[in-house]
């Protein structure tokens, strides 16, 4: 017995594992309880969903919340359904849930394409769309797709619920319109008109699989002409953004190879690109043009 205990102690002392700072843990039994726990603990508390952004950050001490409120097991947040002419995705739906959802695929194929390209199987099994949107990593995939899908993000806080359009939600480097005491509950995406195609194309960092540049495009073609074009970029700048110049250049035009190439040439114009040891500013801008063309071409196919 004592030997066992000694062994355990020995293992602990030798343990090279990175362990987060101490925190208190609460598992919320409902969204309402999570909201009241957040109100009670204030700035010291953080929500824990899949933990696949938060826990790595806590292990590196980049983030040291005193209280974790676990919403990762709330069934009321984990669903994907059609409601009228809208697709509604619960914030707790995992990337894997979305990758395998027929409802998501039939609304916008870029939803399944993007889900399938996030990290690896293990990451997709745990990580959630709500966590990804709240975290707003400048290289995350969902923000670009939400912009191209014109998604509405539903938030709930102590003062009730509100809805923010994706275009107003992402406000900068790891920044969103989310208040400290609010929780993302769902994402609403309107069924696009007939003749709409979409695609998500990503050039990934080969080790982390995060986007160096990711481009989501949705194009509605009617009467042989692009009636509506929506493009979201990630990885390129300090946050995901809509490429309204590229959208405008293709709107009203035929979806030909030449027109797509001309519009894609504008990708990245006026943007301050990120750069790192893997991809310089010039390289990112080049990728933006190439991936805009690929996403648009696949969307109108």
């Amino acid at each position: 017995m004592a030997g066992d205990e000694l062994l355990i102690l020995f293992n602990y002392l030798n343990c090279k594992t990175m362990i987060p700072n101490k925190f208190d843990y609460h598992r919320a039994s409902s969204v309402d309880e999570a909201i009241s726990l957040m109100a009670q603990h204030g700035m010291d508390a953080k929500l824990l969903a899949g933990g696949h952004s938060l826990l790595p950050a806590m292990k590196l001490r980049l983030n040291q919340p005193g209280v974790l409120i676990d919403i990762g097991r709330l069934d009321e947040l984990r669903y994907i359904k059609k409601e009228g002419n809208e697709l509604v995705i619960g914030a707790g739906a995992t990337h894997d849930d979305i990758a395998h959802s027929a409802a998501a695929r039939s609304t916008f194929s870029m939803l399944s394409e993007a889900a399938d390209l996030i990290g690896d199987v293990q990451v997709r099994n745990k990580g959630t769309i709500g966590g990804s949107l709240a975290h707003a990593d400048p290289a995350a995939d969902w923000p670009a797709v939400m912009l191209a899908a014109n998604a509405q993000i539903e938030l709930r806080g102590p003062n009730g619920a509100r809805t923010v359009a994706a275009a107003d939600f992402f406000t900068g480097f790891f920044m969103t319109a989310l208040e400290d005491n609010e929780i993302i509950t769902a994402i609403r995406i309107a069924e696009p008109p007939k003749g709409t195609g979409s695609s998500y194309q990503k050039f990934m960092q080969p080790a982390s699989r995060f986007a160096i540049v990711g481009c989501a495009a949705a194009v509605t073609v009617d009467g042989g002409v692009c009636q509506k074009v929506s493009i979201g970029f990630t990885g390129l700048a300090d946050g995901a953004f809509r490429a309204s110049n590229v959208e405008a250049a293709l709107t009203g035009k035929k979806p030909t190879e030449e027109n797509i190439a001309a519009a894609a040439q504008l990708a990245g114009e006026g943007v301050m690109p990120m750069s790192d040891h893997f991809a310089s500013e010039e390289y990112r801008l080049h990728l933006a043009r190439v991936y805009a063309a690929r996403a648009l071409t696949a969307a109108v196919r």
Binding site: M18, H52, P56, K59, V121, V123, N125, A207, S208
Partner: peptide, 23 residues
């Protein structure tokens, strides 16, 4: 220990997860 290598993969409720990135 940084969620990348998969050596710590186990099944939780039948699904593969990296046990270094789960409490």
């Amino acid at each position: 220990d940084t969620s990348n290598c998969g050596a710590c993969t186990i099944l939780v409720d039948g699904k593969a997860v990296k046990s270094c990135t789960m409490l």
